[in-house]
Design a binder for these strands. Structure first.
Length: 476
RNA sequence: GCUCCGAUGGUGUAGUCCGGCCAAGCAUUUCGGCCUUUCAAGCCGACGACCCGGGUCCAAAUCCCGGUCGGAGCACCA
């Protein structure tokens, strides 16, 4: 009697309160292209929209002009396309100032927002103590006219904010009266100096989430407090709340993700660009040869749970290998080469499959003659002493004698295993593999590989993404 | 400090809501074996976990209480 195996399928849990189609969103700020960390929200949202049907809105949150890279407006949609995320609609917050202003006016009218002129530090101190700021009790008329002045640009930055009233006794000080608008004097990449009063994220997000008709919101745990703040706007307007999910924080080790650091590095010439393979941007991952499918699979497997976890490159790479291996042609790349002369009584020909599991793809064949030059890795060759017998992969068995390998009739069998090393023919060309740790491996690449583009496996070396001139190391 | 959240093998997760089919599944790593003219891939097998202490119950990974540990937030950033 064999116990039936339980079949495991990694599937995201169902969403709550789904009636018909869902409307979801992802809301990156255009500070730069998307990186691995961002991809989680994109994939999760996309998966659910695909499951239930509905719409996925890309909302670009560009309400902080100091933190915008114009390149991001065009690159983010491209990153998403590469990920296979289907965006139904793109919304840019800097197009929607009028909406935010009107909603603010409304909040003022119902007595739920006021214009405050406190110094930043004073405002914070009073909140901490649960005290009311002197402007909190201003009349609706005063607040309305002062807000219009904020909009017109009558106030200098730091001298006026619009504050949403919540509860000064809220146990969490950060939830108490929070700032909804501030005065910004900056040149916005899209709107220039047209606007002076800028909405804060918590305000514009609440308004947009409502007007865009979101049914479900999935985002990181770092927004837990923001969600609480935003709920006040929904409550004051009697709007229906979306269902919120907050997934846990993922620590992605040994990876450079911070946009500010990357930007600085590019400016200083430390990195070649957003696609420098040392970075964790999607552009870099693409260049190294990762499949977008692995990113999707990894995040689906990680699920929606609120646990903080470490990102596992080990598992990520294993998943990617599974996806790419069958398409990865095998080639010989000889690092740190030494010249070896092979001598044989009869002409030799080598024959190595492009893929050992897919022999229908054919073989790499070289006619070599009776005495010819090959290159092997110094590290390999040095492991043998004169008189040692070894196998040159897919070629022949030789006996080492200095820098000569003499043909030998012995075979590799189960009872007599021989060490097998790879090699490349005389007319191989110099080739470099760039690694994500910033180092470069120089060597020789076999002629039949030179025109190949795409994911390859350099035998006994590792998987790489090869272009005409160079290759980027993926992993072993 | 305050508020909130979480805790399943080395790692990532399933199961927890509605207690029993869980002497805990899957993946990865490691180690064996098979196959193989790559230290690749594939196949087979093994090792390995319910944070601690109480409680409820016939029965707890699952419910309750208390600890411990970890994380996030506490900006005129998003």
């Amino acid at each position: 009697m064999v116990k039936e195996k339980r079949v495991q399928e990694h599937r995201l849990p169902d969403l709550e309160d789904v009636s018909g189609n869902v409307v979801m969103r992802m809301a990156p700020s255009p500070s730069g292209p998307l990186h691995l960390g961002h991809s989680r929200m994109a994939i999760l949202n996309d998966e659910y929209v695909k499951r239930y049907g509905g719409r996925l809105i890309l909302r670009i949150e560009d309400t902080n002009p100091d933190n915008i890279d114009p390149f991001a407006y065009t690159q983010i949609p491209r990153d998403l396309e590469w990920l296979g995320v289907d965006v139904s609609e793109v919304v840019i917050q800097s197009d929607r100032f009028d909406l935010y202003y009107n909603e603010a006016r409304n909040l003022i009218k119902i007595g739920k927002a006021y214009v405050c002129h406190c110094k930043q530090q004073d405002f914070r101190d009073m909140k901490l103590k649960g005290l009311e700021c002197p402007h909190r009790s201003n009349t609706i008329e005063t607040n309305s006219s002062e807000f219009e002045e904020m909009i017109r640009g009558s106030f200098r930055p730091g001298t006026a904010t619009l504050v949403v009233k919540t509860d000064l006794n809220h146990p969490n000080p950060s939830i108490r009266d929070w700032i909804a608008f501030r005065v910004v004097d900056a040149n916005h990449p899209r709107t220039g100096k047209k606007y002076h009063a800028y909405p804060m994220m918590n305000f514009s997000v609440a308004v947009d989430d409502h007007y865009l008709g979101l049914t479900h919101v999935i985002r990181g745990k770092d927004h837990l407090n923001n969600t609480e703040k935003q709920k006040y706007v929904f409550q004051y307007n009697k709007w229906k709340l979306p269902v919120y999910y907050h997934y846990g924080l993922i620590n992605i080790p040994e990876t450079i993700l911070k946009t500010s650091i990357i930007k600085k590095g590019i400016a200083e010439g430390k990195y070649s660009g957003w696609d420098d393979i040392r970075l964790g941007t999607l552009l870099a991952l693409k260049r190294r040869g990762y499949s977008p499918a692995v990113i999707r699979r990894y995040w689906i497997e990680s699920g929606l749970r609120e646990i903080d976890a470490d990102f596992s490159w080990e598992i990520f790479n294993a998943m990617n290998k599974e996806i790419i291996d069958s398409g990865a042609m095998r080639f010989w790349f000889v690092r740190d080469p030494v010249r070896v002369t092979v001598k044989s009584p009869l002409p030799l020909q080598s024959r190595a499959p492009y893929h050992p599991g897919r022999t229908e793809l054919g073989y790499r064949k070289y006619d070599l003659g009776t005495e010819f030059t090959i290159f092997v890795q110094k590290e390999d060759w040095d492991k043998f002493d004169d008189g040692d017998v070894l196998r040159l992969k897919d070629l022949c068995v030789v006996v080492k004698s200095g820098n000569v390998g003499n043909f030998d009739h012995r075979e590799v069998t189960k009872d007599h295993p021989l060490k097998i090393i790879h090699w490349c023919p005389q007319d191989s060309e110099r080739f470099s593999v760039y690694k994500p740790d910033g180092t470069v491996d120089n060597g020789l690449l076999e002629p039949l590989a030179l025109d190949y583009n795409g994911i390859a496996q350099f035998e006994r070396y590792g998987y790489v993404n090869k272009t005409a001139d160079e290759a980027f190391f993926l992993y072993r």
